[in-house]
Each structure stands twice: as C-alpha cells, then as structure tokens.
Design a protein around this nucleic acid. Structure first.
Lengths: 217, 217
DNA sequence: GTCAGCTGTGAACGGTGATTCAAATTGGAA
DNA sequence: TTCCAATTTGAATCACCGTTCACAGCTGAC
C-alpha cells in the first residue's frame, strides 16, 4: 500500500528540494494530461514531455506508470474528500442540511473541474488505479454514512441502513456529474440547477416517508 | 455506429445459419470470459479457445476485438433495459411504486449476476466499450425520467427535473450494486436488504418534501 | 581545481496481445 | 466424384508502450 519514492534517496537539502520540485512538476503534468485528454492518452512519454523531463527521469521519481497515476489520483480524490468531510462534520446543523450542502458543493466543484472529474469518476485505466477510485468512493460513502447514522441516533432520520444509503448518495451525485459532462460543457446556470436537484434528491432520499426499514415496495 | 458483420457475406441459407451459430458461440464465450475473469482477462485468443474456434476466425465474424465486446455488452445491457422498462411501463400503478419495483428488480438481478454486472458497470477496457456503457446508463436514466415526468403530470410527484433525477436514480442503484460486489459474494438475504434499501431511497428521493424545485438548501 | 557519485537523457529493448495471411480444409454444386 | 470457392486455422507479424540502461552532465565535497 505504501507508495514507493522511485529510487530518489537524496542527500543534501538542496538536492532534496530540487527533486521534490521535479516530482511535483511530473504529478502536475499527469493531472493536466488526464484532465485534457483522459486516461486513454496518458502515456509516460506524453507526461514526460509536458513536464519537460526525459521519459527515463519519470522513473527516478516513480517506480512505475501505475504508481505515478495512482498518486496523482489519490491527491485529487483526497482533496475532494476533505472538502466534503468538512461540510459533513459541521456542527449545529441537521443531518439533511449537511448532506444537501455537501452534495451541492461536490457537484459544483466537479462540474467546474471539467474533464478531470470525468476521468476520475468513470474513465478506466488499470486495476491499480481503479483501486484508488474505489477507495475514494468508499471514503465518500463512509462520510455520508456517518452523518446518516448520527441523524438516526438523533431521531432526525428514520431507521435505515447507513452504509447502503451512503453508497447510494455517492452514486447519485457521481452519476449526476457524469451525465452532464459526457454531453457537453456545462454553464453556470445549469451547474446550479444540477447541484440543487441532486441535493434535493439526496435529502429526500434519507428523510422521506419510506425511510423506515422495510416499509418499501 | 452500425456494427460491422466482419466480412461474412453468406450465400446459402445453410451457410448463413452456420455462421449465425458461430457468431452466437463467440459472443457467448465473450460473455463467459468477462463474467468469470473480467475485462482484464478478455483476450481474443481466450475467447477463441472457449468458443472452440481459431483466433483468426473471430475476425471473420467481428471486425475487431472492440466490436466483439461492444456487441456483447450491448446485448447484455439491452436485456436489462428491457426488464426495467417493462416494469416502469406497467399500467395502473403509481410512479413511485413502479420506480421502487424497477430498482429492486435491477439490483436483485445484478447481484445475482455477479461478475458480469460488476464488469459491465465499472470495469474499464476501451473507449468504444465505454461508449456502450454510457449509452446504457443514458437509456436507463431516460426510462426513469419518463416515469417521473408522468408522475409530475399526474400530480403525484412534486415539480422536479426528470432528467437529472432519472440519472441520479441510475447512479444510486448502480453504486448500490457495485459497492457490495466489490467486497464479496452477496447472499440472498443481503441481496434483499440492498434491494429494499435502495428502492426506498429512490422512492423517497422523488416523492419527498424537498421534491419541489428550488426548495433545497 | 578535481573527482566521485548522483541525476538526467532518450534511444533501444522486450513483452504483450491484436491482427493478418498463406496454406489446409470443408462443403456444396455440377 | 470432382472441383472451386468460401471458410478455418494458428503461427507469424506488427504496433504499441512501459521500462531499462549505457552514457553524459552536473554538483557539491575536499
């Protein structure tokens, strides 16, 4: 699980700084390529040329292509997860409010992000990388599940399975993001509309009348 | 868009029948491989050996690997879409009931299906194939959107954007299917549980209090 | 100023797996 | 039965890319 550092075993602080900088440039290039061309175009040589280093140099910083892209993806996902978590953990608001807000925020950010979100959410590439994606989804789902659990404990929400509902929320807003992106660039108005609709969708989903276990069908 | 037939230009009906049979065997082999090993293991040579034909023969029936797997996937998706549509179009039931039923059914079938569903829903492989996946999702979303629209027209559901909500429903149940499958085989009890929870989730989502446009946040 | 190691380079390598093709086989028509 | 065209075969071909490596250029230490 622990990502390797390539073989860079730096000595002096100056050298270490230079290496860190190169590493950052490479990761940034990778992000750029993926967000503009998708994973399909993400070849090591392309990343190298954009980062303005030789192909071989990539391997001084990352042990393999998969580890490079995994790390890039992990960074991106971590950031989004943190944003969502921060909202979900705010004090003094109802569970439903927090969920609605988190969803709106995620959707808005993702739709602004454009291609990267699309690639991150659905575009396939490699089992290693898929694992990162699955982890990210699981992390998001867990965050929502926790809030649902709190809501149930507080008597705000009916009895329901927090894990399944958490996953369903994640699925709902990811699909809400993907569907528009697959079509075309999304303008600001549409972005708001999508965010509001999906937030309402998710809030209803956990607060609605049929929220109580077993009352369905 | 129209899928090629390889170069089979058959003459006699007997020959045509034999070819159709070979085609079917190949598609079936492809389905088998994907459902047992996933797309990762889906090599042309493997499919050929399972279908009991030579590698080269595959190319007499399909112009490329991508077209073979696209077609296989398209068939599988079409079948699921038909099942869901049939339920959504039943007369004399409320929109919410139909949606709940459709979701339960889809989830149940998918969880029984095991690996194939997983591969179809999330496992990556090739842009061509991804397109089939996206089309399938869009088709499902459209079917749900139609029912939501009817529900709104009938005054059963509050004002909401049917397209966005349809997509969100699809996302919710697909994620509901994937999350358990990623973990481990799912037993019958769990299958029911998941189906019921997600159905309730989706029903609430469209019927709930915040269903009315703009009342969110 | 010189030297020993890092570090960067990018052409060459190698593995993988889709696709092709020349030869063999088959099936049907005459 | 004989012969021709269509079909099948599967080994060879080919393209694509990730990865390596021998070499050149630096860098910092002494």
């Amino acid at each position: 699980m622990v990502e390797g550092e390539g073989q860079a075993l730096s000595r002096s602080p100056r050298v270490a700084a230079r290496q860190a900088e190169a590493r950052r440039r490479i990761l940034e290039a990778a992000r750029l390529v993926v967000s503009e061309q998708g994973f399909a175009a993400a070849q090591v040589a392309v990343v190298a040329s954009i980062a303005d280093v030789a192909t071989g140099s990539i391997y001084r910083h990352f042990p393999s292509k998969a580890s490079l892209f995994s790390e890039m993806l992990r960074q991106v996902c971590r950031r989004e997860l943190e944003v969502v978590r921060a909202i979900l953990e705010e004090d003094g608001r109802s569970a439903a409010e927090r969920i609605g807000d988190a969803v709106t925020t995620f959707v808005d950010r993702a739709l602004r992000g454009g291609g990267l979100s699309y690639a991150v959410i659905v575009e396939p590439m490699d089992p290693d990388i898929d694992q990162v994606r699955l982890d990210a989804r699981a992390g998001l789902a867990a965050a929502f599940a926790r809030v649902i659990k709190e809501g149930i404990a507080a008597g705000e929400l009916g009895d329901q399975d927090p894990d399944i509902r958490g996953a369903a929320i994640v699925g709902a807003f990811l699909e809400g993001v993907v569907a528009p992106l697959a079509a075309r660039p999304v303008d600001a108005a549409r972005r708001d509309e999508v965010g509001r609709e999906i937030a309402a969708f998710c809030q209803n989903a956990v607060t609605g009348a049929a929220a109580t276990r077993g009352s369905g069908t």
